[in-house]
C-alpha cells in the first residue's frame, strides 16, 4: 500500500492500482453520504480529480494518485456510499486504475512515512 499527502491510498496488483481514501481522511470527513462516481473508461492523470466525496458537513475532492485508465468503479458506492467511510481501506475502495506509468505509485509514501506525516499535521 502507498499513500498520498491528500490522504488517498493505492494498492498495486500487477498493472492495476486500487484507489481509496485513508482511515484518517474518512475520520475527518465523517459518514460519507454521496460519492460522485468516476467514469469508467476515462483516462486520468496523476493529481487530477477522480471524484467528489461528500459527508453531511464536508465535501472533498479525491485526487488520482496515479495516471492511467479508470478500469472499474466500486458499484456498492451508489447504494451504500457510507462504505467509503466505514471500510475505507478495504471494501470502501473507490476505483481501479490501469496504470500507464507504474513507477508513479512507488514514488508515494509507504505506511510508515504516511503515519509520520499524519502525526505532523495533527
Amino acid at each position: 500500500m502507498y499513500y498520498t499527502k491528500d490522504h488517498e491510498w493505492v494498492k498495486v496488483e500487477g498493472n492495476t492500482a486500487t484507489v481509496g481514501i485513508t482511515e484518517y481522511a474518512a475520520k475527518q470527513l465523517g459518514d460519507v453520504t454521496f460519492v460522485e462516481k468516476p467514469v469508467t473508461g476515462k483516462d486520468i492523470k496523476k493529481g487530477q480529480v477522480l471524484c467528489d466525496v461528500e459527508s453531511v458537513k464536508a465535501a472533498s475532492e479525491v485526487y488520482s494518485p496515479v495516471s492511467g485508465k479508470i478500469a472499474q468503479v466500486n458499484g456498492s458506492m451508489e447504494e451504500f456510499p457510507g462504505i467509503v467511510s466505514s471500510l475505507p481501506e478495504s471494501d470502501g475502495w473507490i476505483a481501479k486504475i490501469e496504470m500507464s506509468d507504474p513507477s508513479e505509485a512507488s514514488q508515494l509514501m509507504n505506511a510508515q512515512q504516511y503515519g509520520d506525516y499524519i502525526r505532523t499535521i495533527k
Binding site: E54, K57, A58, A59
Partner: peptide, 12 residues
Amino acid sequence: LQAREQHIKRHR
C-alpha cells in the same frame, strides 16, 4: 445536501 452549498464547497 448542504455539501453542495457555498459555505462548505466554496468555489465548487
